[in-house]
């Protein structure tokens, strides 16, 4: 037994940074103080101003799927440092840190779930895992989600969030855009519905692939949605960006988003849309 033990400080190693000190939080939008449990009960939406906090993937699944209906698949897929990335920090370390932080192996979870009366293939992306960037794992799991939906003729619902492609995997990441889009082409041809739900933030490579290829595109209020980030646009073009630029409401006005839907109404809206698109979900497809 050593006489002196190295003291450890919880925050110093970056662990559990997002754990609040107490039971109270401040809304970043209206600065009201919120009681954490009440916020959780309200699906992470500020009851004063309607600000939508980001959700963990488990909260997100609880919000979208019927209770206890989600069964995850493809849980054993993990990222590898395919390029032996020689940047400022090591990719394997980054991955390990994010796995520790989130308790998940990568940035998306996919499975079977029920929404209303519909068996759906449901995917949720988790921005807290490396900005939900898309590398080979995200691309593969999303593609399998589409293929799963196609095989069973189950509609696909994918809750999107992402900073874009994952640089650490170089061109393998970029090609995931093509791979996922190819799978959607097959869903479209088979008339299996696909509805992405865009949450804060959904950008770049994910936007330029499966996030914008839905039969209907839903978005949460206030979500930042776009291709290039606002800072890049300002720096490259020196343009002044209008109020509300790249927000869900702005894009609904500009014709990209079908519907901005408050979180509390998402599940019901999805169920209703699916009722319209596949009226008898239980009936087998005529051969």
């Amino acid at each position: 037994m050593p006489f002196f033990r190295k003291r450890t400080y919880r925050n110093a190693d970056g662990k559990r940074k997002d754990m609040p000190g107490g039971l109270w939080l401040k809304c970043p939008s209206c600065s009201e103080i919120l009681y954490k449990r009440e916020l959780d009960d309200n699906l992470g939406v500020c009851r004063h101003c309607g600000h939508h906090f980001q959700l963990t993937r488990d909260q997100r699944i609880r919000c979208l799927a019927e209770p206890d209906s989600f069964v995850e698949f493809d849980t054993g897929i993990t990222s590898v440092d395919v390029l032996g990335f020689t940047g400022t920090d090591s990719y394997p370390d980054k991955l390990a840190g994010n796995i520790r932080k989130t308790g998940h192996k990568d940035a998306v979870s996919c499975g079977e779930a029920r929404i209303g009366d519909h068996e759906v293939a449901l995917g949720v992306m988790d921005f807290s895992f490396l900005g939900a960037s898309m590398g080979s794992v995200v691309g593969e799991k999303v593609t399998r989600l589409f293929e799963h939906g196609l095989e069973r003729r189950h509609p696909v619902v994918l809750c999107c969030a992402s900073g874009g492609a994952r640089m650490y995997e170089g061109m393998f990441s970029l090609m995931q855009m093509a791979k996922t889009s190819a799978a959607i082409a097959r869903l479209n041809a088979a008339a299996v519905p696909y509805i992405p739900v865009l949450t804060h933030p959904t950008m770049a490579g994910v936007m330029a692939s499966f996030a914008t290829l839905g039969d209907a595109i839903l978005a949460e209020p206030g979500a930042l949605i776009g291709f290039a980030g606002p800072r890049v646009i300002k720096e490259t073009t020196q343009q002044e960006l209008p109020e509300g630029f790249q927000r869900a409401e702005f894009l609904e006005k500009k014709g990209l988003i079908d519907l901005v839907v408050p979180r509390s109404e998402l599940r019901a809206t999805l169920a209703r849309l699916l009722d319209f698109l596949c009226p008898s979900p239980a009936a087998p497809e005529p051969v």
Binding site: D18, L39, T75, G76, T78, T102, F172, Q176
Partner: peptide, 24 residues
Amino acid sequence: MGVYAEEAAPAETAPPEDADAPPA
């Protein structure tokens, strides 16, 4: 296209660590 590692899926999914974490 894509490189990843895959292990056989576990029989039961472990409960996630952060089920009660606040929205980040």
